[in-house]
Simulated assay, not measured.
Amino acid sequence: MQVELYVENCFDESPPYLPLNLGEAEIPIAAETWSTWFRRWLEILQAELYQKSIYEIGLRLTDDAEIQALNAQYRHQDKPTDVLSFATLEVDFPQSQEISGAMPLYLGDIVISVDMAKRQAQQQGHSLATELAWLAAHGLLHLLGWDHPDEETEMRMLKQQGILLKAIGILIDIE
C-alpha cells in the first residue's frame, strides 16, 4: 500500500516534503514520518477502505486564526478547533469503475491547528509530536466515516485512535 501525503504548512512557502517550521517552533515530525504513519494506519483500517493500492491525503498544519476561519465557514462555529477533516467520499459511496482504476484514491484533507495542539499537549502532559499524531489519527478516522455524536461512539473512536497510535510506537492512556 502506498500513501501520497501532501503536507502543507501555512507559515512559510517551503516545499511540502521538507521539515516544517512554524515561526520559531519547528514541527517535530518529518514528512517521511507522516507518510509512514498514515500508511501504517491505513493498513490497520484496510477493512474500511475502498480496495486501492494508492491513497492520497492532504495534511495542513496551520494556526488558530486559519482554523477558526475554516470552522466558521464550514461548521458555522466561529472559534478555533484542534482538527478539521474534509472527506471527499461519502461513507456508503458505492465503488465505481473510476474508483477501482489505477489512479490514487483521494480520501480528503486534514487541517490541524498547531497552536491548539501545543496547548493540548501541555495540558495532557505529553509532547507536541504525540498530540499532532493523536489529532492526525482522529482526522483520518473522520475521513473514513467515523463520527462521535454520542458518548458510546466517542469512546469507540478514542479507542481506535489509541490502537493507531500504539501501532506507530506512541502510547496514550484512554480513560
Rank of each mutant, 00 (worst) to 15 (best):
M155F: 09
A117W: 06
E90N: 13
L49N: 00
E175L: 09
I57A: 03
K118V: 13
S127K: 08
I27A: 05
L132Q: 04
E4M: 09
I168V: 15
G169Y: 07
K52N: 12
L107A: 10
I44P: 13
E151K: 08
Q51R: 15
V3N: 00
I110C: 06
D92V: 06
S113E: 00
V3A: 14
I67F: 03
D78Y: 13
K52F: 07
I110M: 05
Q123N: 12
Q2C: 10
E32T: 10
G58K: 01
P104D: 12
Q160R: 14
S113D: 02
H142M: 00
Y17L: 12
R156C: 12
I29Y: 07
Y50D: 04
Q123M: 10
I27P: 04
R39Q: 15
P16M: 09
I54M: 08
Q95I: 14
Q46D: 09
G58S: 10
R39I: 00
K52I: 14
L143H: 08
V7K: 02
A121S: 15
V111A: 03
S113V: 06
Q68P: 00
G108F: 07
I54Y: 06
T88D: 06
G58L: 03
L140G: 07
V114P: 04
L20S: 11
I174D: 10
E152K: 09
S35M: 09
S14G: 08
I163Y: 03
Q2R: 15
D92L: 13
I112R: 00
T81W: 08
V3Y: 02
H142K: 04
K118M: 12
W34L: 05
E66Y: 11
L165A: 02
T36W: 03
